[in-house]
Structure formats: structure tokens, C-alpha cells
Design a protein around this nucleic acid. Structure first.
Lengths: 201, 201, 201, 201
DNA sequence: GATGAATGAGCTTTCATTCAT
DNA sequence: TATGAATGAAAGCTCATTCAT
């Protein structure tokens, strides 16, 4: 039976397991990843895995949660600055930060994200989408003229989902036909043109 | 060693295997799908799988190819009509056809597509992206004024990848915050506004 | 149910199967050899194998019999000449003929023989041992002074078994510490010295 | 991945596996022997086999090595006594010891040896041949007059290979035409006559 | 609490054999 | 008679999970 660890020692072990799970996930993908690999990388015995998690899936859930929390934690502090920017600059700033986040630690998170777009894992994407949605909502407060846009929720829904997927896919491509800068500019321009023309009749 | 089926009987068996593979893929996802399930669903013995395919992976490749080919075959005949339409109507027409395609046969293809966004499977998405890219390129021939748009390849790259993913994700959601019609309209408007404002300086 | 073939066509097919079995046996060994390989090499369908043989083992038995019969047929005609020779010349002549027999057809029979020393296959070696025993018995008729040797059956038993195995083993070795000529001379000398000293008290 | 057993418990398991493998090998031969049989006989689960060995072949290799090591260990301590004996007594002593070794444990090793003469397994016979060769070489030191024999390596090569095979074959025969005593005497006499007559010219 | 040896269900794959054509 | 597609038992092997230490 998995227990909630309260001591520091335990917390450190849980952390090591999650970190190891992320690394194994990044390297092998979710199918090939084994509990033995995770335990070895975490520097503990396989049995200990089950002291902290009910089963393998619970470990991956925790790893996914970690990924999502870190992503949210990366975005949230940017908000105060972003909401005051011109829309195209916002997108630039946001996506370059997103890229840096994905590529740090030898692309640890990028390689995890590659496997994350199975729609089954959409539950985990939810918080990321929400924080981005919040960002855009706050943006509206600072730019009230935009509230006249048609069907804002639908537009945001499309833009967020499409952009996140497109960025991850692009970064995962060995030889893309376009550069990251071109990608970002295109995404920025698309949102900019939308916000300047699609007003409610 | 897999052999090339020559007789009609054999061809039917290969078809049954691919169909069964798609159904198992749709129901279980690529990890949980087993050869036994495929054989059972195809109504044949496990051994027969290996008369036509070298291994399990080859079966899934064939299934993925079938999905992609069918998708392309669904889009291609629409092209002549679509390229003559106004851009928002094009998107509407295209995406409603796409939805019907994904939802037929008890959402067979939609449920397969849910698993297809693992970036590892991007190889299989390639032909779909290409046929859509071709569609937009042809569209330019019929609407020459659009050739003045900034960085067309980048815009198309973002739009196609983002839209396809967003549509599949939306259709997979049980209770979405927006309706399909709203989604389509938002995507259509976004492209429309981009084409009317983002001209080369 | 396997049938005894009486027509020429059938006999040719049986022959082709046996030949194919020997070749597959030589190349793959008895474990890795499959019915499909045999059928392919024989130029017939797998099903046809079972028109002439009850099962795979029966094919191998027939192949073993063929090998044995050919070996006996190789030795028998040599006998009239060999029995008149001096004992060392007999061994030389016999073993060089044996070597040629084993190495013809790209070592077909040598490679089969390598697998034949499993003592389980001793049944098949029997006729070979017998023809060699007959040879030595005939030899005694032409050299009556040898009948005074101690325990002739035991000596022949040891000499035949030991020599045949040693020759096949030696020919199978890539880099032997001794040459074939040295091997033959040693075996010849050993028998010669035995026949000149070990007389019944 | 096989791990090196460190604990006593593990070492006992490895031993049980090797012992079981020898028994299965003895009963079924190398082809028919399955991993399940070995595991059952060893009283462990199939999975445990793979805790200690990379694959089935590695188990058989270890079993073969055990057989060879034990054979060598049986012969080696005899050497000091044998090298001082008259040659015929040496052969008697050696072969009777060999027989006892092969027949102990319900003929465990004899039944393994029956399968070992596939020339492919000659690699494993090597150490046995070498220890016997060493024995004869030492014998020469104690009987310097024998160094005048013609081509000693060739003679030893033939004698060792031939004798070992002949003994194993004879012991495996249900109803042999000669007794073990006759066999041993014949082999002893053969070597004795060779050593007394075949001197370098 | 931590371990890792042990487990065995269940996977993919092979292949001798059958039988409708 | 000849075929080869179909079969399915059985093989080798993996790995999440357990539990005695």
C-alpha cells in the first residue's frame, strides 16, 4: 500500500523516483520504460518503488504531474509582464520561454512532451491549457478593446491547443522546413491579425 | 517470412488483419494491443498473422498506412471544389468532411487518431500534412492576391498542424467548453483574418 | 498417410526431397532445419512432403539412410582390392577414399556427419560399422596369420569406431594441430603395430 | 539481464539450475530440453532462470562447462599415480575411473556425453582433450624411451579422440558385442603395441 | 523502512502438420 | 496428385508485482 511520505528522507526518495521516471520516459518512451530502470536510476531497490507508489502507472502519473506543474510554474510568473505587452511580443516572449523550458536538461521535458499528445494524456495537459487561458483572460483586462472579439473562448481554445502542439512538434523535428523564429512569428502574426479584425458585428 | 498475397482469398485475409488491427488500436491503444486480439478479431489463427506480416510492428505500420491513405483519399477529391471557395467556406467544408470521416464506423479513425499524435508517429502524419499543404498551394493559384502574404510556408505549417490536432482533440473530448461549429468558425475566422491583413511589407 | 511411390515421377520427387533434406541438414543442422526449407529446396509444396513421408522425422531418417547407403556403397567396391594390400596401405587407401567421399559436393556428407555422432543416431552408423567389420573379416581370410591376434572383435570394434569419429572430427576442424596425412599415418601405424605384436599367448 | 549472484541463496539457485539443466539435457537431449522443464526441475519459476542467465543457450553453456570441469577434475588428481604406471595399467585405471564417473548419478554424465559428440560441441571437449594430452606428455617425462616414437602428437590425437568416443559409445549401447573389460584391454593393448614398435627410423 | 530474489501470467513468434481447393 | 494458406500448441523470454529477510 502506498503511503504519503512525510519525512524529508521519504520526500527526497519520491523526488528521485519522479526524476528518474521522467528521464526514463524521455529516453525510452512510456512503453519501453521499466520499473527496474526507474529504480536503478533513482538509486533504490525495485521494492522501494512500491513503498511510495501503488503501481507503475501511479509513478507515471506523478511524473506527468511534475511536468505539468513545472510548466505552469514556468508560465505563471511571466504573466504580470506579458499582459502588458503588445500581443505579438507576448507570443514571442512566451514561446521562447517555452522553448528554453523544453530544451533544458538535455531536452528532458521536450522528449517527455513528445509522448504526451496522446489524447489519453489530455487530462494532464489541462492545467497547462488553463494557465494559458488565464493568461489570455488577464490580457483582456489590460486590453479592454479586445473584449469585442467574436467568440473569445473558441478562439483561445483553438489557439492554445494548436500552438502548444505545433511548437512541440517543431522542436522535435530534426530538419524542419521552417525555423523556430519563423514559426513564432507566424503564430504571433496569426493572433495579431485575428485580434485586429474579428470583432463582433 | 511474410509472403506477398496473390490470391483473392489471401488479400481478403490481409484486409481483415488490417481492419482488426485498426479496431484493436482504436480500442486499446498501441501498447495494450496484442497479436492475439488482432487474430481473434480478424477471425484467424495467430500463426496466420505471420503469413502476411513479418512481425507485430509491421501490422501496425500497415494499419497506420491504411489510416493515412484513407485520410488522403478523403481529402484529395474535395480539392477541386474547395480551391474555388471563399477561405472560410473552405475550412468549414474541409473540417466537416474531416469530422464525418473520423466519426464513421463508430469513431474508428478518431480513436486511432487519438494515439497518433505521439510525435514518434509523425512519419505517418506526413502524407496528410502534405496533401493539405498541396490544397493550400493550389488555393493560391486560384487566389493570386494571397501570394503577397508574409512567409506562407510558416503560416501553412502552423495552421495545418495546429488545426488537425485541435479538431481531433476536440472531437475526443466528452464535454467540451465549445461546440464543433464554434471551433470550426474560430479556425475559419483566424485564417480569414490572417489572409486579409498579413501582407508582405 | 505416406505411400510407397512406384512411378518414376514419384521416385524423382522422393529423391529430390531426400537430397534437399541432406542439404538443409548440412547447412542448418537438425534443429534449425524446417520443412519449408526442405520443400523449397526440393522445388515442391510443403504439403507434398507429407504425400511421401509421414512426418519430418521420417524425412530425416530417409536422409540418414541415404547417407549410410552411399557410404556403404563407397566402401564395398573397394574391398576386393583392399583385402590384398598390406595393412597400412589398406588404411591409407580407405581413409583417403573416405575423405574424398565426405568432401565432395561442397562437404555435403562431412557436414551431415558432424551431426551424426549423437549416440542416438548410432542406429544409422550400424551399417557403416558392419561393412567395415566385414572388410576386416575378409582381410583375415587373405592374411591367415592375423587370426592369431588376441580378441579380434574387440580390437576391430575399437579401431573402427575410434577411427571413423577421429577422421570426421579432424576434417571438421578449421586449424588442426596435425595434417590429414599425419592422422592417416598414425592410424595406419597403430593398427600395423597391433597386428604385428598382439598375438594370443 | 543476468546478474552475478552474490548471496549464498543465489549461488544455490544457480547450482540448482545447472544441475537441472544437466538432468534435462541427459533425459531429453539439447533440442527437446525446454526452459520450463529446467525451471520445474530446479524447483523455481521460469523468470528466475533469467535472473542468472541471459538466455537458454547460456544455461546450456554453463551446464556443459560444469560437465567438462568435473571431468577434468576427475582426471587431474589421477595423473601423479598414472604417470608412474606401465602403459596398459594406465589405460585400465583411467578408463575404469572414467566409466565410474560417467555412470554415477544414474548415468547423468554418460547421458549428457551421448549428445556431446556433435562436432559443434567440440569446443567443450577441448579442455578434456587437453588434460588427457597433458597426462600423456607427463608420461613421457617418466618414460623417456618413448620420446623416440614417431609423430607423437598425431598418435596422441588419434588415440584420445578415438578412445573417448569409443568408450562413451560402448557404455551407451544396450547389448554390446564386447564387454567393457574387453574394450579396455583392446584399447590398452593397442597403445602398448604402438609404444613398443613404432620408433623413429 | 528497504531490499532484490522470486514469481508467473502473458507476450511475440515459430513451425510441423492439415485439408479445402 | 499437388498445393500452400491456415492452424495453434508450444517455445523463449519479459517485467510488474510481491514478500521474506
Amino acid at each position: 500500500m502506498a503511503r504519503v511520505p512525510r519525512q524529508n528522507r521519504s520526500k527526497a526518495t519520491v523526488d528521485a523516483i519522479i526524476q528518474a521516471a521522467l528521464m526514463v520516459l524521455a529516453k525510452e518512451g512510456p512503453n519501453a520504460a521499466t520499473t527496474r530502470q526507474i529504480a536503478d536510476l533513482a538509486g533504490i531497490g525495485v521494492g522501494s518503488l512500491y513503498e511510495y507508489f501503488d503501481n507503475k502507472e501511479a509513478i507515471f502519473e506523478a511524473a506527468a504531474k511534475r511536468f505539468v506543474d513545472d510548466t505552469v510554474a514556468m508560465i505563471q510568473p511571466l504573466a504580470p509582464r506579458l499582459v502588458r505587452m503588445e500581443i505579438r511580443d507576448l507570443i514571442h516572449e512566451l514561446l521562447y520561454n517555452f522553448r528554453d523550458f523544453l530544451e533544458k536538461n538535455d531536452q528532458l521535458y521536450l522528449r517527455c512532451a513528445r509522448h504526451a499528445f496522446t489524447i489519453d494524456m489530455a487530462v494532464y495537459q489541462e492545467p497547462i491549457n488553463r494557465v494559458l487561458m488565464d493568461l489570455f483572460m488577464q490580457y483582456l483586462l489590460y486590453h479592454p478593446e479586445l473584449t469585442k472579439l467574436k467568440n473569445i473562448p473558441a478562439a483561445i481554445y483553438c489557439y492554445i491547443n494548436g500552438s502548444v502542439y505545433t511548437v512541440v512538434k517543431h522542436l522535435s523535428e530534426e530538419n524542419s522546413i521552417i525555423s523556430f523564429e519563423e514559426l513564432v512569428t507566424a503564430l504571433a502574426d496569426m493572433l495579431h491579425s485575428y485580434t485586429t479584425t474579428e470583432l463582433v458585428k
